[in-house]
Amino acid sequence: MTPETSDNRTLPWFARPAARTWRCPPAPAAVRDFHASLPDYAPTPLIELPVIADELGVGRLFVKDESSRLGLPAFKALGVSWAVHRVLAERPESGDGAAPGPVTLVTATDGNHGRAVARTARRLGLRAHVFVAEGVHPRASAAIAAERAEVTLVAGSYDMAVRRAAEAAAAPGVVLVQDTAWPGYERIPGRIVEGYSTLCAEIDEQLAAADAGPPGLVAVPVGVGSLAQAVVTHCRSRAAGPSASALLSVEPRAASCVLDSLLHGEPVSVTTGETTMAGLNCGTPSSLAWPHLRDGLDAAVAVTDADSDRAAADLTALGLSPGPCGAASLAGVRAALGGEGADGRRATLGLGPDSTVVLLSTEGSEANPVRVTGT
């Protein structure tokens, strides 16, 4: 597929019409039961916005608001809490039958994931060491440190921070809890993806309660692709064919590693630039997510910071409080359904005037202050 044009600009776009025929196994049912057992668990809101539905020419539009999840301003704690729970349960006893020794959780972050790892470690009485990529706002780094984690600032990109965290995890008693995978490191990222399935299950229940039925389109912001993998897994483990939900990934133009990989037909790494969508500023897709994204996404689009900023302002005016990453899903749907070529893209996604659209707003405004340089 080649990029299309919109409003005299090049619209970075990819579509795969066969995606709704692809199938995969579902996430474990035990994930939802685990989260429900946590003392601070509650489903996050699914908020209907008729004004945006009218703007986009669809029947109904809902926003899954992840601005407050398990006490944090982003969805990431769902994956981390489940992954750490499974890691600790699966640790082998020592040779004399004694309990395993103390654990330090280590990770790299562009913001929200690191804070989720630090909070989970503090809740369980474990140590945490978080490598923070260059450009993350000092307030985000301070929030991680406030969880009693050791914070190391990395003079480089998110991908470089991941390498530093992986090196640190070679020490005894250290467990790498990373939300991206690469060959040889896929078990824990897989658990993190499983953890995100709770968010999808909640949406099903909330849509049914709103008498809305399955969505015609789900839009999901993408960094390395783990949340998108969870959404693909949830949707493609159920109905296949034209009635299945269309799935749209949304990335910053400054860091469109998934879109570029889809256009090339294989995983590629991109050099990331500056973007206010800090949590999506990732240069390499997760190796575990890639097959699901390649086969299960209907379309992918990349948006500018200005697109995300406008979407955030509009959602704020309607009573939500999304961060730039959370607002990216609205920016992406607007780009896909507007401008030159919109009718073709709408047809590709199977959207009509009665369709239901769900936008995943993955973080609140507190989660990722505006990205800065030289941190």
Results as ranks from 00 to 15, higher is better:
34 F>V: 07
36 A>I: 13
370 V>L: 08
203 I>V: 14
207 L>M: 04
316 T>E: 14
334 R>K: 07
211 D>Y: 05
209 A>H: 05
202 E>A: 11
185 Y>R: 06
299 A>D: 04
73 P>K: 00
105 L>N: 06
297 L>A: 03
351 L>F: 06
75 F>R: 00
23 R>K: 10
121 A>I: 03
322 P>T: 03
109 T>C: 12
265 G>P: 09
191 R>H: 12
93 E>A: 08
131 F>V: 13
335 A>Y: 01
233 T>W: 11
86 R>T: 14
361 S>Q: 12
2 T>V: 13
253 R>C: 09
25 P>T: 13
342 A>Q: 15
369 P>G: 14
251 E>G: 02
203 I>A: 06
111 G>P: 09
193 V>G: 04
81 S>C: 04
20 R>K: 14
144 I>F: 12
49 L>F: 12
22 W>T: 15
269 S>Q: 15
226 S>E: 03
372 V>I: 15
35 H>R: 00
147 E>I: 02
64 K>V: 02
78 L>P: 00
148 R>H: 14
364 G>R: 12
188 I>T: 11
52 I>C: 14
156 G>A: 07
98 A>Y: 03
243 S>C: 08
54 D>F: 06
356 T>D: 07
365 S>C: 12
271 T>R: 10
33 D>N: 09
280 L>E: 01
116 A>H: 02
228 A>Y: 10
305 D>G: 05
74 A>R: 01
206 Q>G: 05
78 L>D: 09
109 T>D: 05
252 P>K: 05
283 G>Q: 08
246 A>N: 02
353 P>C: 06
154 V>C: 08
156 G>I: 11
96 D>H: 12
200 C>S: 07
196 Y>L: 00
110 D>P: 04
136 V>N: 10
287 S>E: 12
315 L>I: 03
208 A>G: 10
70 L>Q: 00
192 I>L: 10
91 R>C: 13
154 V>H: 03
